[in-house]
């Protein structure tokens, strides 16, 4: 097979890695655009239910998250396995919600404050009693726009 043995003496052309940086940069920009910064370490696991009528959150920057679920394994020694409320990165009680919401609202622009939304990320095995308490507390702190987080069901 002279066709293939013919170039035995030649060197294989070196392969240029100059464009690799460009490719990785494109990847980098993709991730920077599509993802958001994780705002806090959530200390509870929330396995949200599925729903078909879900809508996207309009303004992520005006959203405050309240997570309700069972504490993560590393926190179970302290808080047990009962349903707990996680505000920001700490496990708190219902009574702390008012302060938490007020603090978040303070940090917002005045014209954005009425559009503040509270996203309730609630584990599907949670009993409604806890959720009702949280909702009552939100009403008291006049954070009336809420969203129940859910996964889009196919």
């Amino acid at each position: 097979m002279a066709k293939f043995t013919g170039n035995k003496g030649k060197k294989i052309a070196g392969f240029s890695t100059a464009s690799m940086g460009d490719i990785v940069f494109i990847l980098l920009f993709f991730f920077m655009v599509t993802t958001t910064m994780r705002e806090s370490d959530v200390k509870v696991t929330t396995n949200v239910p599925k729903a078909t009528e879900v809508t996207k959150l309009e303004r992520k920057d005006l959203t405050v998250y309240i997570n309700i679920g069972t504490p993560i394994p590393s926190e179970q020694a302290r808080y047990g396995t009962d349903t707990r409320i996680c505000l920001g990165d700490a496990i708190k009680t219902v009574d702390d919600i008012g302060k938490f919401i007020a603090a978040y609202r303070e940090g917002l622009d005045e014209k954005d404050q009425p559009y503040m939304t509270t996203a309730l990320k609630v584990d599907k095995d949670t009993k409604m009693g806890v959720v009702s308490d949280v909702k009552e507390e939100l009403r008291r702190s006049s954070a009336l726009r809420i969203m129940y987080n859910a996964l889009k069901a196919e």
């Binding site: 991730f31 949200v48 009528e53 809508t55 996207k56 959203t63 996203a119 909702k135 009336l144 969203m147």
Partner: peptide, 21 residues
């Protein structure tokens, strides 16, 4: 760095307005 610090989960859900006290 960006892969570690960011999350991709899109927040979706059902919107409701609570009644005023």
């Amino acid at each position: 760095f960006f892969l570690m610090t960011s999350s991709m989960d899109e927040s979706m859900g059902i919107n409701r307005i609570l009644p005023q006290i």
